[in-house]
Design a protein around this nucleic acid. Structure first.
Length: 592
RNA sequence: GGCCCCGUAGUUCAAUGGAUAGAAUAGAAGUUUCCUAAACUUUAGAUACAAGUUCGAUUCUUGUCGGGGCUACCA
């Protein structure tokens, strides 16, 4: 139960008592009071003015008087400016909150509420290594899953590996043609990068062949169709589907290189899954649902034997769900997998972390599932995120303008090391500790940079300028944490639960007010599937702590009560920072 | 062509229809006998444009201009 909820309840009660009107507490608008006014929280009165036919000033005064008289434990004073009723909460309320929660390391985390949610994220193709765009997906998916857990859901993290299809066939062909038996072992190249190199080689060769054919008089379309390497890749896909042993062996071998490479990267960035689906196992799912859909009249068959769904009544197009040759298209297996997930895990919600270029696809997917009456249908939610762009524009693999994930992580750690050494505070760190610290700072900075932005929005990553360790960044927050821990290491004496005095200085109070909001923030972030809410909150909270830290001494506080109070504040702040950063997948160092 | 999304300080990001549009960074000026200056304090700087709805619009509606995405019997 949050203080804001209490205020809303009290306001609804006041309105009932004073004017005999029934106002839903959810309709009472309560904001944080702007710093330039006196108060902690503000009730916005405009909404009631018309209905009650009273001026905002009088309304505010009457409600304020009522609250002072009837909610003695909550409010100490109020003022009314225009339509805003500014309320000040009693210091004793805040002090009690602090004393009761400071020692709760799990503060902000809710108990299980019985809802089970699946979060599908990462879902890579196995023909090339991860790049910056995949990192946003991974950070977002992992963090959203953790936030959902913290707000009381049981979460199943899952990944659908796109391990079959024309893309991997391309890498395989290029490897056969140009590889000379290259392996990660004999080249020293990380497996996913090695396979990606052959994908690039495929495209280079393909381009060359197309140009040659065009110079011999073929049209562009003909050339693209007839290029020998493309024909070979298509044949390889056919052979794969037939289960031709050599092809399957090569496929397995090359995929295993990729998985090993991915695992390394995943480990570095903390990505993990409870369940992994492979498309080579799931791509035939959904075929029976096509039959079912035909019987239910959701789908219809055209003369050429292809099967369609008509979504024009819902403002969308007609969509094919089975080709005329009887093979299924991408969306068919998605429908099948949606059903499979539901059957296997009995989930209430199924979240797909996928880029916004697939908005239409997921609209269609959900609609079809609903029309088929699948129990999982209404729980489908596309967590759509914007592309990561470079200052020069969108990243394109073919034009070589991708920021490789492994390279970027290396670069971040390198810069973290360099900046840390410049500051010269690490004399008593050993080598392992330094390595860990550089990882914590460098990878933390990257995660925070990406997660602090609203997922829905496109974002720009500038390799030169985006790598910052000051201001609105993870290292800022990590530094705040390290300074708190430094204080707490020095203060061995037990912190008392009581004995915190009864008056709060402005910065002491501000810290508690913000701390009290933490569970609400987590709930909002979970509701919106938006880790940036947590990132912004933790940053602001750390900022308040830094002001407090500069202004007031903890160890040399002016009285024993103040020292005890501030130690409680330190402990609570450390817990909140650690928990909040943990929800973002970012570690916090004891020293830095 | 049709459908969808986005235009906020030089730059990168905020702002459930609410008070004087917040941060960070880059710029200017300060703070270290005192718990870590990766910090703190002060300062200057923005809602693409035009109408409309409203007591009140960055937010909702319409139009203009600018940017992006989707619109495959590809995945």
């Amino acid at each position: 139960m949050s203080i804001v909820t209490d205020i809303k309840k009290a306001a609804a009660k006041a309105l009932q008592a004073l004017y005999n009107v029934n106002i839903n507490e959810a309709d009472v608008l309560v904001n944080s009071t702007k710093p330039e006014f006196d108060g902690d929280y503000t009730i916005v009165l405009f909404a009631f003015v018309k209905q009650l036919r009273k001026s905002p000033e009088i309304l505010g005064k009457e409600i304020g008087d009522y609250l002072m008289a009837n909610e003695l434990q909550l409010f100490s004073r109020f003022n009314v400016i225009k339509g805003f009723l500014n309320l000040t909460i009693k210091d004793t309320y805040w002090l009690h909150f602090l004393s009761s929660q400071y020692n709760n390391a799990a503060y902000g985390v809710q108990a299980h509420n019985g809802t089970r949610v699946m979060v599908e994220y990462s879902s890579p193709n196995t023909n090339k290594p991860l790049h910056l765009g995949h990192l946003r997906n991974n950070f977002l998916g992992w963090s959203t899953a953790e936030i959902l857990k913290a707000s009381g859901n049981e979460v199943v993290k899952t990944c659908v590996v796109n391990d079959r299809g024309i893309h991997i066939s391309k890498s395989m062909i290029a490897w056969q043609w140009f590889g000379n038996g290259a392996t990660p072992e004999n080249t020293g190249i990380k497996g996913d990068h090695l396979v990606g190199d052959y994908y690039v080689m495929f495209n280079n060769e393909y381009k060359k062949e197309v140009e040659q054919l065009i110079s011999k008089g073929a049209s562009k379309e003909e050339a693209e169709q007839q290029a020998p390497i493309m024909e070979a890749a298509r044949q390889m896909l056919v052979d794969w589907e037939k289960g031709k042993p050599e092809v399957r062996d090569l496929w397995q071998k090359m995929n295993s290189w990729v998985y090993k490479g991915f695992d390394e990267t995943y480990q570095r960035i903390g990505t993990d899954f409870d369940k992994v689906y492979y498309e080579s196992n799931t791509y035939l799912l959904g075929k029976d649902l096509v039959e079912e859909g035909l019987q239910k009249g959701v789908f219809y068959r055209k003369e050429d034997n292809s099967v369609w769904v008509d979504l024009t009544a819902d403002g969308l197009d007609e969509k094919v769900v089975q080709r005329k040759d009887g093979t299924s298209v991408y969306i068919t297996q998605d429908i099948g997998l949606a059903e499979q997930k539901q059957k296997e895990y009995n989930i209430q919600q199924s979240i797909y972390v996928v880029g916004d270029e697939q908005n239409y696809h997921f609209k269609v997917l959900k609609l079809i599932c609903q029309k088929l009456g699948l129990p999982s249908a209404d729980g489908i939610h596309h967590l759509s995120y914007g592309m990561v762009e470079l200052p020069t524009g969108k990243m394109k693999s073919r034009e070589g303008t991708v920021v490789d994930a492994d390279d970027l992580l290396d670069e971040m750690v390198k810069i973290a090391a360099q900046k840390t050494e410049e500051l010269g505070k690490i004399k008593d760190f050993n080598e392992d500790e330094l390595k860990e610290l550089y990882n914590t700072i460098g990878i933390g900075a990257l995660k925070f940079f990406i997660l602090r932005v609203d997922p829905k929005k496109r974002m720009v990553f500038n390799p030169e300028e985006s790598i910052d360790f000051h201001g609105f960044t993870a290292p800022f927050i990590q530094y705040t944490y390290a300074r708190i821990k430094s204080i707490l290491r020095k203060e061995n004496s037990a912190i008392q639960a009581a004995n915190t005095g009864n008056v709060l200085l402005p910065l002491e109070k501000e810290l508690i007010v913000q701390a009290e909001q933490f569970p609400t923030i987590i709930a909002e972030a979970a509701e919106a599937y938006d880790p940036s809410k947590v990132a912004v909150y933790i940053y602001n909270y750390a900022k308040t702590f830094n002001s407090f830290y500069t202004e007031h001494s903890v160890t040399n506080a002016e009285s024993a009560e103040k020292k005890n109070l501030r130690l409680q504040l330190c402990v609570l702040t450390a817990h909140i920072i650690k928990t909040g950063m943990c929800l973002l997948g970012i570690e916090v160092p004891e020293r830095m």
